[in-house]
Simulated scan of single mutants.
Amino acid sequence: MKKTWFKRALAALCALTCAVSLAGCGSSQSDGKIRIGIKFDQPGLGFKKSGTYVGFDVDVAKYIAKKLGYTEDEIVWKEAPSKQREAMLQNGDVDFIIATYSITDERKKVVDFAGPYFVAGQDLLVRKGDTSVRGPEDLNGKRLCSVTGSTSAVTVKEKFANEVQLMEQPGYAECATALFSGIVDAVTTDDIILAGLASASRGRLEVVGKPFTQEYYGVGVKKGSNDLKKKINAAITDMEKDGSWKRALADNTKGTNYTPNPKYNPPVPNGKGNK
C-alpha cells in the first residue's frame, strides 16, 4: 500500500513539474536530448537537405551542443520561422535558437541572447544584370520582398524608402521565387543569407554588395537563462580560438565570393550588440 501511494505521489509530482518547468519530465534534461531551433530554408546557414541539416548556423549549434555535453545524435532540430522564435523560447519548445537571429532591444524585452557569434550586414538581392537597384535609396516605387517577422523590411521603410511596396513571405525561398518571376524587384535581408540564395540560384540572382547595416546574430535563450548564456558564450569563444568558426564559415560560403566584414568578425561574445 505504501509503495503504491509513493508511486502515485511521485507520478503526480513529475506531471506538475512538466507543466511548469522546462527542466521537468520530457525536457532535454530528462530525456538526454537538446532541442535547437534553426532555419530549414536558408542555404549556407540552416537548410534541411534529404533529412539532414547543413549550414553555418548548424555547425555553430553542433559545436555549442558538444560543449554542453551533447553528441550530434542527441540533438533534436526544430524549425524556427522568424515570427515564431520568441514564442518557441517562451513556451520551452527549444533550449536555444540559432537562426540568423539578430539581437535587438525589442527582442531582448522577451528573450535573452548569448553571443553574438556573427555580424552580418543587410543588403539587397536582385536579378542578374538588373542595374535599376544598386542600393536601398533606389527602392522608392519598387516592389521589395522580405520575411514576416524579420527586421530587414522595417529598416528599409524607416531609413531609406518610404514608398517601397512591401511583400512579406513566410520564408526566403518564397522571396527568391517571387524575384525570379518578376513579382518583386528585390529581396532584402542579411548579406550572408542573400549569398546563399544567390548560390542556389545558379547564377540567376546576385547580391548588390553594398551592406548598409550591422546585424549581430545571437543565440536566443529563454529569459533568465543566465547560466546557459555563460556556457554558450564560452563555447563561441572556444570555437573562434580553435579555428572551427573560420572553417565553418569558409565551408558554408564556398563558391559565393562572400567575405564577412573583418571589422566586426569574428565578434566578441557578449560584446557590442548584446549589452
Rank of each mutant, 00 (worst) to 15 (best):
G243F: 04
A120C: 06
L205V: 08
G55Q: 06
I193K: 08
F6Y: 09
F160T: 07
L205Y: 05
W77C: 10
V111C: 02
A153D: 06
L22I: 12
K108G: 05
A235T: 02
T17D: 12
K210Q: 14
G46R: 05
K222Q: 15
I236A: 02
K254M: 04
T213D: 01
K157G: 01
G220W: 04
V221S: 08
M239D: 04
R202D: 13
V58C: 10
Y216S: 12
F118S: 08
L197M: 13
P136M: 06
A200E: 10
S82L: 12
Y117T: 08
Y258H: 06
K230V: 05
G44C: 03
S199G: 11
F113C: 04
T253M: 14
L205M: 13
L197Q: 06
A11Q: 11
G32E: 01
Q84G: 06
T177H: 08
L68D: 06
S244K: 05
K223W: 04
K241L: 08
K109L: 12
K210G: 07
G271W: 04
E163H: 14
M88I: 06
G46T: 04
K67F: 00
M167G: 05
L249T: 07
K67G: 15
Q122S: 11
N270P: 00
L205I: 10
K157L: 15
N274A: 13
D130V: 07
S30G: 02
A80V: 10
E72R: 11
K159T: 10
E158P: 01
G69I: 06
T256N: 06
V268L: 03
A186S: 10
Y70K: 11
P267S: 10
T155A: 12
T237I: 04
A114M: 00
A173L: 15
K78W: 00
F113T: 05
T155S: 10
M167F: 08
N270C: 03
A161E: 02
R35D: 01
A176T: 11
N252R: 07
Y63C: 10
G243Q: 06
A195Y: 01
A173D: 09
L125H: 01
K229M: 06
V76A: 09
V119F: 06
V94T: 00
Q29E: 13
T104M: 01
C175T: 11
K241P: 03
F118W: 05
K128R: 13
T237A: 15
V221E: 03
E206G: 08
G24L: 11
T151C: 01
F113D: 00
K48S: 14
T148Q: 08
Q214K: 15
V187P: 04
E163S: 15
A248S: 15
I34Y: 00
V219L: 01
L228Q: 13
D59I: 01
D251K: 14
C14W: 04
A234T: 14
E240I: 15
A235R: 03
A80M: 10
E137W: 12
N91E: 14
Y216I: 07
G218F: 06
V119N: 03
I232H: 09
F56Y: 14
T189M: 07
A250T: 10
T131A: 11
E174Y: 07
Y216H: 15
N270F: 02
D238L: 11
D227Y: 02
L197S: 07
V221K: 02
E168M: 14
F212H: 09
K263Y: 00
K159L: 14
V164L: 10
S201M: 09
